[in-house]
Design a protein around this nucleic acid. Structure first.
Lengths: 149, 149
DNA sequence: AGTAATGTTGACAAATTTAGTCGGGTATTC
DNA sequence: GAATACCCGACTAAATTTGTCAACATTACT
């Protein structure tokens, strides 16, 4: 069970946008290059993110995309939900409206899926793009450089 | 991101086998009927489980399948691993041998995938078929009936 | 005004995976 | 030897994934 490239590319793109938050729009081309994503494909993905209200676009020259909200208000869950649909191992726990299976009043495997779903959500609901950005800074600018001097 | 029917059917089948543990083989037909799985398809799935060493078969009349080990020694993780491959959101954390992405020495999204992987495994490694069986008994034979009298 | 840069949209399609089906085998019991 | 059951490999329809492409719309800059 592996996420599709949609979710993987999409989160990378959002992360890139997060790094650039507050500094004006970034063109798709740059995002695609930096994160090794086929530009034409990313076009489709970012359209999904736009419709989901996570990014907005600025058309024309010097245009590009930017995040609507600050990175600490965007969770990994929101991004993945938009691109992959509900992150759950089975439909019966992904959608509260989904029909229960009719094997018995309650199906035991369902409770397994539910536990998995909850544990995934514990992680992705808690993790924001800001957390990712901080981790990036921590990893790539360790104690060796002085930020201001 | 939803498991395929392989994993879902497979776990149901193993659960059924677990319920019957110690009582001789069950034919595929019965498992398929009880759990609403196309019999021909289940044939394929159980072949995978057999090759993975989780069940064994008894050929001929009165034959069928049985679990090799007691239900408390079979985890949900083992079953799903056999049928779905590693349960992880991305290849780079599914397989320790998988190539790291070459974006940077360390990729931040990777650490997100790793956290998800770990949280899934916390659940599925801890959950055995025995746990499922106990839950089933608890659900379907509550306080209203007397087990022995 | 014109042009280059950029997002927008919709159509297309190859490759892969999923979810089975089917038919003819083989082993075992009665 | 007949009935029961597993065993195996081939086949396939449908869906999904992972893109590509072309034409168009909008804006900044000169």
């Amino acid at each position: 069970m592996i996420l599709s490239t949609r979710g993987r590319y999409g989160l990378k793109a959002m992360f890139e946008l997060g790094l650039h938050y507050g500094k004006g729009p970034i063109p798709l081309k740059i995002i695609a290059e930096r994160q090794c994503i086929p530009e034409n494909y990313l076009e489709q993905l970012i359209a999904i993110l736009r419709k989901a209200g996570l990014v907005k676009s600025v058309r024309g020259a010097q245009g590009g995309y930017l995040m609507l909200r600050p990175p600490d208000q965007v969770t990994v869950a929101q991004v993945l939900l938009a691109l992959e649909g509900p992150l759950a191992p089975a439909e019966c726990v992904a959608d509260p409206e989904a029909p229960r299976c009719r094997l018995a009043d309650e199906c035991v495997t369902r409770s397994v899926w539910e536990k998995i779903r909850v544990s995934i959500h514990d992680v992705i609901d808690a993790m924001t793009l800001q957390h990712m950005i901080e981790e990036q800074l921590h990893l790539h600018a360790p104690t060796s450089k002085h930020p201001k001097e």
